[in-house]
């Protein structure tokens, strides 16, 4: 909240960008992977605090699915999943932060769209989500069409949920009153305070806000806003093929490990006595790491320190958490979802 206006950051970023790289103007471009190794830390985005996706816990350690994806990349490059610095960003700050080099990796509920992909480079989809409208049960708003003339709180700054609202207004010929806030957290609190009849945000974020923040979760209901699937992904600056390789294949390790039943507990054993394909990726064949400038055991470190996709999901969003989100689209293809690992050969 106190990281108040976008402008200060934007201006700072632009000036920093123009001043910081005085030396780097010419010569061969160094990949982010090399820079991260020299620096010893990966700089990754945080959100303004969405439980289950990215939010610092009471000890100040960032927790959540998006944060763990950052940790996986740090484990691959540096061999240490704890070497990540998180920079909290709002919706309007995140793209410029990648463009100017303020952060290395964007992993913060960012949907891949054409215009965003033209500005930064989306690597891969990590989560499929939809937009959700939260309303109070007592108001009896059970279909979007009944939102006519109602007040709706949301984050400004060009968030994608706006498209879903436009769609609802157009198809039902209704008009809603939108109230915008700098941060999704302020929008949420203002809805909970009664200023608005509804609060619209991403599906997983909505579930987590109701489960962890609402005073009485049973008072609120959720409904889908529009039919769009929002592919949330990780993104890096454009024009850095090496970093693209590392980010894409690190994420692939997470899905591949789940598919092959490799997890934090059995990875040591699998690296020794798994089938030949598993052993090769987990360090038996150094050519995977060498091709990306990483150590032979990079994939092993990712699983050992962060876990596979299922473990990351369970830890942050699954049944064991207050959010209890359904994996739906995010299940492996074998289980009826949209996720599948890419082949290694």
């Amino acid at each position: 909240m106190i990281n108040r206006s976008t402008q200060a950051t934007l201006m700072g970023l632009v000036l920093a960008a123009s001043l910081a790289g005085c030396s780097g103007g010419s010569g061969r471009k160094e990949s982010l992977v090399e820079k991260i190794k020299t620096r010893g830390t990966l700089v990754c985005s945080g959100s303004q605090g969405v439980p289950g996706l990215s939010r610092p816990d009471e000890k100040g350690v960032w927790r959540g699915f998006d944060s763990d994806v950052c940790r996986a990349i740090a484990a691959a490059i540096l061999g240490d999943a704890t070497k990540v610095r998180f920079v909290p960003l709002n919706a309007a700050q995140r793209l410029p932060a990648v463009q100017t080099g303020e952060i290395d990796v964007l992993s913060r509920t960012s949907t891949l769209t054409f215009s965003r992909d033209m500005a930064i480079r989306f690597v891969t989809n990590t989560l499929y989500d939809g937009d959700v409208i939260i309303t109070r049960k007592a108001d009896g708003i059970d279909v979007p069409a009944r939102l006519n003339g109602r007040t709706i709180c949301m984050q400004g700054g060009g968030s994608l949920v706006e498209g879903a609202l436009d769609e609802i207004e157009e198809s039902n010929r209704i008009k809603m009153k939108r109230v915008y806030f700098d941060s999704t957290i302020t929008a949420r609190d203002t809805y909970f305070a009664g200023r608005c009849d509804a609060y619209v945000t991403d599906g997983l974020a909505a579930q987590s806000q109701i489960a962890t923040v609402a005073r009485n979760p049973a008072e609120h209901v959720m409904m889908r806003a529009g039919n769009a699937v929002e592919p949330n992904g990780i993104a890096i600056p454009r024009g850095d093929d090496r970093m693209f390789d590392v980010a894409r294949w690190t994420f692939n390790v997470l899905l591949w490990a789940e598919q092959n039943g490799i997890n934090q507990a059995n990875v040591d054993q699998m690296a020794k006595s798994g089938n030949s394909g598993v052993r090769r990726v987990l360090g038996g064949d150094p050519s995977f790491g060498r091709a990306m400038g990483l150590k032979p055991d990079w994939a092993y470190q990712v699983i050992k320190q962060v876990g596979n996709y299922q473990e990351i999901w369970d830890r942050n969003l699954g049944e064991g958490t207050p959010i209890k989100a359904d994996r739906s689209y995010n299940k492996l293809y074998a289980n009826g979802g949209l996720m599948f690992p890419l082949p290694w050969d």
């Binding site: 206006s5 976008t6 402008q7 919706a91 309007a92 463009q99 215009s115 400004g156 060009g158 915008y180």
Partner: peptide, 30 residues
């Protein structure tokens, strides 16, 4: 007046920030 961003009023700063986010034209926008 640029501080109004925290309470959801669309002043020039907010509008320009949104436009920058939509178009990724941070330098021109700034």
């Amino acid at each position: 007046s640029t501080l109004v961003i925290v309470i959801g009023y669309a002043d020039f700063m907010v509008t320009a920030g949104t436009m920058i986010n939509k178009t990724s034209r941070a330098v021109e926008g700034t």
